[in-house]
Every structure is written in C-alpha cells, then in structure tokens.
Design a protein around this nucleic acid. Sequence first.
RNA 1: CGGGACGUGGCGCAGCUUGGUAGCGCGCAUCGUUCGGGACGAUGAGGUCGUCGGUUCAAAUCCGACCGUCCCGACCA
Length: 569
Amino acid sequence: MRWSVAFIPTLRDDPADAEAVSHRLLVRGGYIRQLMAGVYSMLPLGQRVRAKVMAIIKEEIDAIGGQEFLLPQLHPISIWEQTGRIDTMRDIIMSFEDNKGGTVILGPTHEEIFATAATELTSYKQLPQLWYHIQTKFRDEARPKSGLLRVREFTMKDSYTFDADFEGLNRQFDRHYDAYVRIFERLGMEVVSVEASSGAMGGKESVEFMVRSDVGEDEVAACPEGDYAANLETATSTLPSVADPDGPLDVQRFATPGVRTIADLVSFDGGASTDRQIKTLVYVLDDVPTLVLLRGDHALQEQKLADATRSVDVRSAQADEIKELLGADAGSLGAVGVEGIPILADAQLAGRAGLTTGANENDFHVRGVDIERDISVTEWLDLRTVNAGEACPNCGEPLDVYSAIEVGHIFKLGTFYAEKLGLSVLDENGATIPIVMGSYGIGVERNMAASIEANHDDKGIVWPLEIAPYHVVITVVRPDDERSSDVSTTMYDELRSAGVEVLLDDRMERPGVKFTDAELIGIPLRITVGPRGLESGVVEFALRRSGEQREVATEDAIAEVHAFLKAAR
RNA sequence: CGGGACGUGGCGCAGCUUGGUAGCGCGCAUCGUUCGGGACGAUGAGGUCGUCGGUUCAAAUCCGACCGUCCCGACCA
C-alpha cells in the first residue's frame, strides 16, 4: 500500500483519559476508533492485525482437529431459559424485542447454540468432535475500560468439544492447552496458566491464561519457583498455625465502649490481636442471609463464597438488615449462640479457641470463644483471600501476587449442557450416555491489545512479525527526488510480487514525521531510501525491535529483506 | 448500580465564577522557502458551544431535565 493513498490517520495527542498503553497506541497509530462506550471501529491497520490474530488462532485450532462453524449472533431467549443462564448471566446479556414481539438475545457466548447443533450427534462413533467458530459476542459490561481490553462487542474464537467420557474430555482439554500456549507464543506474549473459578459457565474445572500487566483486571497468586499459580479468586496458601489458647477458656462477655473495628479491639485494653479475633460478616446469598466467619486479619474472597455455595447473587447485607438479623451494628457482630442462620466459617478458624468476637450488642464483645464448642458452624470452607508473601501451598516459597490480563480461558464443562439440553449418544452397548463437553475461548481484540502491552517502547508499538499489519515500510526521504522515487518504487513492486507485505511511505512529509509514524505503528523493518544513501549505492535498514540500523547495498536489499523475514520467524 | 467529573471545529483544550462579536495548539487546504528524526512564513476552510426546556432585552456562560463519555467502587468467563 502507498501510504499517500492509505487511510492511516496517526495522531500526535493521546486520547483523553486513556489508561492503557495499548489503548493510546492503537488510537494514535490509527488502528481503532471508539464509536460508543466499549464499542470500537477497526480501521484498516487494526483490521489487518485482527485478521492475522484470527488466522493464527484458526491454524492452531485446525491443527488439533477443529472444524470451523459459524453460528448466529441472534439467539432465541428460549434456549437460554432451558439452561437457566438467562438468569445467571442476566446482567451482561443484551436483548431486544423483534417485530413479532419475541425476545431475541445478542449472543454473549455460544455453549447453548453449539450444544443445540450437537443434538444431531447420535452415536459414540461420531465422537470425539471439536467444533469452533470465530464470532462476535455481545456483553453489556457495566463499565467497559482500557480500550480493547474490556469491551461490549468483541470477537471471540470459541471452541467446543464433545466426548463420550471424561477421559476424552481430558484429552481434548490438554490439546487445547497446548494449542493455546502456541497461540500466545506466536502473539509475542509470555503467559502463565492458572487455575480459575468457572463462574457462570456451569463447569467443574478451568484454566486461565494470564499475561502479567499493570492494566490487567485479574490478580494472580504465583510461586516464584513455578510450583503454583492461581487466580486470586481461587488461590490458596499455607499459613503457619496459631498457638491456642492464649486467653480464657470460657466465654466471657465484656464491655468495649466505642470499639467498632478489628483494629479498635487490638488497641483496646483487654482486647485481642487480629489473629485471635473472629471477623463476622453478613452476606445475602440468593436472598438468604448468611454469616461468614474469618480470622480477624483475613479478607473474604467473594468469588470463593459464590463458588462454594453455588450462589448467583452475592452481596453484603445492608446496615438495616444486619441490625434486624443480629440486633447489633457491624462492628459488634458475632456468631456465638446464633441459631437458624447458615454460618459459613473459613477453614483457618478450625480448631481455634480463646478467640474474641462481637456479642451482638453494641459496645460488647465476648472472649474465650472455642469456635467448635461455641458456634454452630454450618459448613467449613476456604473463603479467604491469599496475600503476597504467604507460603506456596506446594513448596513453601513466598507467593507473588500481581495483576494480569486474562487472554484465554478453557473449561471442562462436563455434562451440564447435556443434561439441560438433552445431548446424548448411544454407546456400543446401545445405552444412552450424556455427551461430555468442554469449551475454550480466546478474545481476538483483547489479545491484540495484550500483545501491545507486552510489545511496545516509548516510541510506539513493536509488533511481533506475524501479526504486524505490514512486514516492511519503505520510507522515501525525498519522494520528489527522481532516483529515490525510482529505486523505492522498484523495490516496492519487487517485494510485493514476492509476497512481502510492504507499505511505501511516499508522502510529501519531512523525514522525521515519516520515521516517527513508522515507529508508532510498529512495522518490524523500515527501509530508508534517500539521496544521501543512493549516492553511495545503499539504503538503510532499521529494525524496530532492536533499534539496529545498518546500510545495505541497493542491489542486495531484496535478498536482505528475505533474510530478515526468515530470521524473524 | 453507588460516588465523582466532563461534553465548545477532525484531535487536545481555554472561555463559564462576573450573561453581550466563540478563541488557542495540533491537524487540514493553497502558495512559497525548507526537508536524513515531529520545519517556517503568508493566506484560508471548518463550530446551530451534547439535546430539550426555562430565566433574561440578550445564554457556551445562570437554572432544570434528559442524553452521552470518562474516572473510582460494586459487578463481571
């Protein structure tokens, strides 16, 4: 493409309020433009990159036996009612009424629809299957942010596997895992795979692929030795045990005027250290008020609470609800003697005694609590949030906690959809067996952005060769110089006919403008053609990633480009 | 959904407190001089100041409602 006729509107100013580097660079480089909150137009450069990302994904999924489909974006609400996910995903589902008065959903994901297609499977002989498509998804996120990293309309490659048993599922899952690792490597990213919460997917086990980044919205707890990595939503650690008891062995009620927080009680005369207190939280789980107990210095992980109780709607109780339930305000709450309300306790409290907690009367606490003797715990669960520095559950090294971008997520769904939608085949004995499903997603545009987060410098984007919108840019220093024009045009034609994706910057701009634009948009190789070099029979190669610059004899330039491309692959 | 901010040529912003001719930088067009790391000069195009309503002789400016966008939090494959 000649730059002088291409539509590549680079900008000198950052978009207002853009936090993520990838967002700034994609906008300034003329890759994308925002249309509305969380909705972006792909400009020609952006679409070239997007197409290449999709091609890589397609190659790798085809390589493990995938068959490409294209399922609709418009779904009847009835299928979503059958699986119940119209409720569990209500907040993000976009829907509208069609002209006949029916409710139509803009698909946020396609488990239901692929499962519907899979109802045509009738025999174990047709299994296993690996089906996928690359399709637009709509999710009405309450707060889109960071450019392409969190949007409301995006493209996803989602694949689905159908097997006769869990062994088959495990094989397909492992193949996807390997394919995903290859995909992210080709996109120029270092990923860690972590165990994750399956959230609203209705699955049993899932693995997320994470790229470390300050603009990521997820948090990962990872062992520096590589022995463990998990989303903070599910992460665990090994904690030293606390020696008990330290206080009185019998329950004693005592006045604590003005004490409202864990910290207040630490400094209160006759109080207790944070690890000898019970923190009592009141949550409403799908409309059921529930007490949640944690060690005083531990924080609740709400996702663990939701997962463990299979709750959809998890919220902390309002002040008036708490008062009505326990007769006291937050700060004086406790579970001693409480009956008739589910009490969920974090496992770190098991076996503890000599503890202090609220007395369910403002300005009073109780000490000497033996949790198993004095509190009717309904269920012991892992509910706490892991902190950086705690010991790796596998090797004991201190864990790192850092933020990361979720670039892929793979799920073992099991038979959830088979049961809801009637997916089954006959086995070799003629018996009806449910189909075991897996699902595997990669967000295309998010991966474009994440790749930039991992591949940029202060001048702009540094694309990996495979997804760069063009491999080479020929910068013509003086397009009005006849020899420069001849040499650059000839080189451009030869490279194009050799299949090299090349951009010819023949704009009548000053050289500095063209150099900075080439660096901003991140083309891997720039060839500078100018009168000064041509005088001595050379052009100049400038490598975007290394910054290396060298002179190449004009007649060797084509061969040198091929050598560069070969080496960079 | 709770809290906060913003909305003025293509982009980034000032003007609003104290109502009276809409301004700056970048970009854009033409001409000239320049031009191997974001040039300079001259001339010029381009804006119903988010929308609707109110107050007023007069509203970008004051008041109200609505819409939109962003930020913090909640939520979220």
